[in-house]
Amino acid sequence: MNSTQSPEVPPLKAWLLLLLLALIWGSSFLLIKKGLLTFSPDQLAALRIASAGLVLLPLIVKRVHNVQRHHWPKLISVGLVGSFIPAFLFAFAQTQLPSGVTGVLNTFTPLATLVIGVFIFKQVAKPQQWLGIAIGLVGTTLLVTAGEAGAFAFNQYGLLILAATVCYGLNLNLIKHHIPDLSALTITGVSLFLVAPPALLYLLFATPFIAQVSDFESVQLSLAAVLVLGIVGTAAALVIFNTVVKLTDTTFTSSVTYLIPIVALILGVLDGEPFLMAHGFGMAAILFGVWIANRRSRKKPL
């Protein structure tokens, strides 16, 4: 039996970490919105990646010796498709898309993950996984189309989010199938650090970032939002995310994207937005879809 094979039933630890991820990433769209009040999308993305990569540096110094020559190309790929490219795609997309729509489009990640896993990485998918993903997408549709405030208006910027979900799908499968021998912290820290220097150089020398932050009072809210986004929403969250990948499978881990719109909806209600009956049905469908996709298959006794 392969020691890296995921358990059939996700452990309680994996479920708790999944919920924590949903809380962190469900808040990220609001942080992006606050960051864009002051910074351009390329500045926001570069600062996000630079802060995430640099904050983990002290934790990975002693772990670099575990990285062998064949790991480096894979870790660079993880840094690019798992963090760097999606950060820019989301930042530019959210200049023209509401944060709620962005969060909903992000739920294409499980489908992208499963399709890439089946057709590229030769992963075997169960019918119940396809069913769970379909139910989750139905719930997401209910959330985004509930009432006038949730009306879905797709434009070309939505394609940027879909491209980001493909990146996430590639990243999930790459970690699960090709880097099973490195810890989650090593994968996250090293991959982020590899892409942090170009992001930092771009931020400092290709944008007016230094001049902007010299007037600290005018940028402090946006700066704080992006730093939290980078340190907590990217660095810490990716350590948790990669831990869940190691504990379970790619379909379970990518299910976090179904929970993210629920968090965003709750934050909206706390901010005074209405809660409609369709929201309740949508949330129930999402949770049911996640359960279906990850429940144990019962075998009939002989």
Rank of each mutant, 00 (worst) to 15 (best):
G150S: 04
G136P: 00
T234A: 03
I133E: 12
S40N: 11
G79A: 15
A151W: 00
A206T: 08
P110M: 02
V290D: 01
V118S: 04
G233H: 12
N2E: 14
I262S: 03
L267T: 00
L200H: 10
I260V: 15
R69I: 11
L12M: 13
L143R: 11
R296G: 08
I133P: 01
A93T: 02
V232R: 01
Y202S: 13
K33G: 02
I179H: 03
T257L: 05
F121Q: 03
I24T: 02
A163C: 08
K126N: 09
G132N: 03
T165S: 04
P110N: 07
L200F: 10
G82P: 01
V81E: 09
P86T: 01
T109M: 00
V213N: 08
S28N: 14
L89C: 08
L238W: 00
I286P: 06
Q128H: 10
M1L: 11
L267S: 07
E217H: 12
F90C: 01
P261Q: 09
D215K: 06
N171F: 09
V190T: 05
A112H: 12
F90Y: 14
A134E: 13
V101F: 12
T234Q: 02
F275Y: 13
I266P: 08
R63A: 04
K74P: 05
H71C: 08
A264Y: 12
T248I: 15
V190D: 07
A91Y: 06
V64L: 15
P261M: 04
P180M: 12
L36E: 09
P73Y: 13
A285Q: 06
L30I: 15
M283R: 07
D181P: 08
P11D: 05
W25I: 03
S222M: 09
K176C: 08
L192Y: 04
K74F: 09
N155T: 06
L162W: 13
A196K: 11
Y258L: 03
I85R: 04
F281N: 05
Q128A: 09
A264T: 11
V104R: 04
H70Y: 11
Y258F: 13
K34I: 11
V290E: 04
G169F: 11
T251L: 11
A125W: 05
I240N: 01
T186D: 09
L172W: 08
A206I: 01
H65Q: 15
L265S: 03
K122M: 06
G136K: 15
L30S: 07
V9Y: 02
L276N: 07
